[in-house]
Simulated assay, not measured.
Amino acid sequence: MEYKDYYQTLGVAKTASDDEIKKAYRKLVRKYHPDVSKEADAQAKTQEINEAYGVLSDAEKRTAYDDLGRGHQYRAGQEFRPPPDWGRGFGGGAGGPGASAGFGGADSDFFADLFANLGGRRRQAPPQRGEDSHASITIDLADTYTGATRTISLTVAERDAQDRIFTRERNLSVNIPKGVTAGQQLRLSGQGQPGAAGPGDLYLEIQFRPHNRYRIDGRDVYQTVPVAPWELALGGEVEVTTPSGKVNVTVPAGSQSGRKLRLRGRGIPGKEVGDLYLLLEVVLPPATSDKARELYQTMAREMAFNPRAGG
C-alpha cells in the first residue's frame, strides 16, 4: 500500500489552518470537477481531493494522521503499513462499521487501513451531516437579465446498504435567479455529499459564457457596437441589440471609433442596477467592386485626410 500525503494533495502546508484547507479544497474541486474539467483524470483527481479534505477537515482524523507521521519522513507513493499498535487511544479495534465510511475514502486502501481503528469512536459520536460540494455553472449573459432554468449533470456520491460510498451520474434542474453576477454562488440545499445526519449542500459558482461583443465588470456591461464610417461622421440613430433587448441609440455627429456611450440602468439588474456602455467600433465597407474603389479614391482626393498627422 502506498502512503498518501494529504497535505501535498491539497497543496497546503502541514501547519495550514482550517480556512486555508477549505479554500484550497474549493479551488481544486472547481478545477477538477468532472462536470467542468477537461482533464482526462478529472474524476480520479476529484476523488483524491475529496479523500484528502475528508481527513484534514476532520479534527480527529487530522490529529491521528499527523500523529502517525510525527517522527517519520513518509513520502507520497512510498510503501506503507500502519504500525501494529496504530490506533491505540482512538477507541475500538480494527475494522467495524466506521472502517470504510470516510468522506471520499471508500475506494482507498490507504484510507481504509489507516482509519479502521477509529471505528469505535465513530459509533459513539453523533451522526454527522454530509460535506458541502462545490461546482460551477456557465450561463449566457442574457440569463441574468430575465432569470432562467438550466439542467446540469453531476457526479454524486451515495451510500449503499453496507455504508460504502459509490458515485453515479444524475441531472439536476437549477433555477438561475435574475441579477446573478460572475463569481456569485448559488446554494442548493441537500444536494451535497451524503451523511448519516443528511446530505450537505451544493454550491454552484456562476460563470458567464465568453462572448466576443460583451465584457462584464461587476454589474456593468461593456458592449462593442459596429458602426459605419458615415454613422460616426454624420451622426444619427442606430438600432442595437443589447442583452436586455433592442434599443435605439443616438450616435453624436463627429464621433470617433472607440467612443463610449453610457446607457444608465441597462446593466445587470439588482438592488444597485449596473450600466451598459456601448463602445463604438468603425467597420469599413470592403472595396471589392469598381464602384466601391472609385468612391474610396474620391474620398482620398476630395477630403485629403491624413489620420497620422500630428502623431
Results as ranks from 00 to 15, higher is better:
P269D: 02
Q185S: 14
A44L: 11
V251E: 04
G54V: 05
E60D: 13
A196G: 13
P126Y: 01
L172Q: 12
G245C: 07
T224E: 13
H33C: 01
R88N: 07
A287I: 00
D66R: 07
K260Q: 15
G147A: 04
R293Y: 05
R266P: 02
Q184Y: 11
A309H: 13
Q223F: 06
K260V: 15
A292E: 07
L154W: 04
G235D: 00
Y65M: 10
G69N: 14
L10M: 04
G311W: 13
L56I: 13
P226W: 08
A76V: 00
E294M: 02
R81Q: 11
S189G: 05
R213L: 13
L276Q: 04
R150V: 14
D19P: 01
Y222F: 15
R293T: 11
A101W: 08
F305A: 12
F305H: 13
Q78M: 15
P286Y: 08
T167N: 07
P229F: 06
G104M: 07
Q223V: 02
P252D: 12
P199R: 14
D201H: 12
G130N: 03
R129A: 09
Q162L: 11
A76N: 15
R213F: 05
F80D: 03
K178H: 07
H72W: 09
R88I: 08
V55L: 10
K4F: 11
Q207W: 01
E51W: 05
P286I: 08
P82M: 08
P126M: 01
E39L: 13
Y214G: 09
D35H: 03
K14G: 15
P210F: 11
R264T: 04
E158T: 07
G69Q: 10
R293C: 09
Y145P: 04
D132C: 11
Y214C: 08
Q43S: 10
A44H: 07
Y7L: 03
G96L: 02
V225G: 12
G119D: 09
Q43T: 10
Q256H: 14
L234H: 12
G77M: 14
Q73S: 15
R81A: 14
L232I: 05
V251Y: 06
D163P: 00
D113L: 15
Q297C: 02
R121H: 08
A197H: 04
E51P: 00
G192C: 07
Y53R: 07
D140L: 05
D201I: 09
A59G: 00
G179Y: 10
F208E: 06
A94Q: 11
G89M: 08
A135Y: 09
T224D: 10
G198H: 06
R122E: 13
G89P: 14
D35F: 01
A106R: 05
L279F: 04
Y3G: 06
P229G: 02
V240I: 15
I165R: 08
D18A: 15
A40I: 04
F166S: 11
L204H: 06
R75H: 13
Y296V: 08
A148M: 02
G218H: 10
P82Y: 07
R122K: 13
Q207S: 07
V251P: 05
R123Y: 02
A253Q: 12
P307E: 10
N306D: 15
E302T: 12
T63K: 14
K246T: 15
P229W: 09
L204S: 03
A42V: 08
D18K: 13
Y3K: 05
T15Q: 12
G87V: 07
